[in-house]
Design a protein around this nucleic acid. Structure first.
Length: 286
DNA sequence: CCACAGGACGGCT
DNA sequence: AGCCGTCCTGTG
């Protein structure tokens, strides 16, 4: 069912910041500057006209509720930004640059698989792989006469072989995807109960999955519906920006993960995940 | 053709 | 515990 939802006076919301800060892989910019993406079983097109935000999409159920949840609209980002901006000038600059960011509430299963694919990989290729996985195994959705595909469920991937993944361009991640799907289906790791766990416990569970290391686990905790801000995913860009701003080692690759983790915890506390996003996004784009 | 970019993992100290 | 080679593909 095609539905629309409009929000007026959303001055801080910026589509580019949301969709291009590295948290999601299924949103594509259109020629008219709108973005079209797929989440859950919805296809959504979103654009801005001044301070008005317009969401339009193919959606079963309550469209407004789903948009509010996915785009994290109920959270007071201004308050978070004010707290972080007080910490130092670097954060202040990062926040000024990426003030339109919202951290999406993405489906946990989809986030797990997406970030396993992200390992040792770049964004265009990750997007291509996820697109092909959805096209081959996901459920078709029609929006404005065009075909889109939902991210495949664990059940839909149940009988897919390692060889088939390899053909879709997964590379050495083929086996990891195969094994993790099995572990989730047989509840060796129960992702339905994960939101009840503490951040440390949930992280420990995620690390049991094949292809999930510390960085991928933290991305899942931050970018999925688990929505934990007390994590600090460290990739090469975060290492770079933390060294440039705070550590000043001549060789950033030699700075230990532990040192960065401790520094993040000490400086940013329970909001370290948000701080990571602003610093990461600012450093990547500048 | 080669160099490089991007995390997990397993084998080695 | 930390270090390092390997895994695969796209880009310059």
């Amino acid at each position: 069912m095609e539905q629309t939802y409009t929000i007026k006076n959303q001055g801080e919301f910026k589509l580019k910041d949301i969709f291009e800060c590295g948290q999601c892989f299924r949103w594509n910019k259109q020629e008219d500057e709108s973005y079209i993406g797929v989440f859950e079983n919805n296809v959504v097109q979103v654009w801005q006209e001044g301070k008005t935000l317009i969401f339009e999409g193919e959606c079963e159920g309550n469209f407004q509720k789903q948009i509010e949840k996915y785009f994290d609209l109920k959270r007071d980002y201004k308050e978070i930004q004010n707290k972080l901006a007080k910490i130092d000038k670097h954060l202040k600059i990062g926040i000024e640059y990426g003030k339109g960011i919202r951290i999406l509430n993405q489906d946990l299963w989809e986030t797990i698989i997406s970030f396993i694919i992200s390992a040792n990989n770049n964004i265009p290729r990750i997007k291509g792989i996820i697109e092909r996985l959805s096209l081959n195994y996901g459920t078709k959705i029609i929006y404005k006469e065009k075909e889109y595909y939902a991210f495949p469920t664990a059940k839909q991937l149940k009988d897919v072989s390692i060889e088939e993944y390899r053909k879709l361009g997964l590379g050495f991640r083929d086996k990891r995807l195969y094994e993790t799907t099995k572990m989730i289906l047989n509840k060796e790791v129960d992702i339905d109960k994960m939101d009840k766990l503490s951040t440390e416990e949930a992280r420990k569970e995620l690390l049991k999955l094949s292809g999930v290391g510390p960085k991928v686990a933290d991305c899942i905790l931050l970018f999925s519906t688990l929505k934990r801000f007390d994590v600090f995913p460290i990739d090469v860009w975060v290492r770079r920006v933390m060294n440039d701003l705070y550590i000043h080692d001549e060789d950033e690759t030699k700075v230990s993960k532990n040192k960065i983790e401790n520094l993040a915890k000490e400086k940013f506390g329970d909001l370290q995940g948000m701080a990571q996003q602003y610093l990461f996004y600012w450093r990547r784009e500048n």
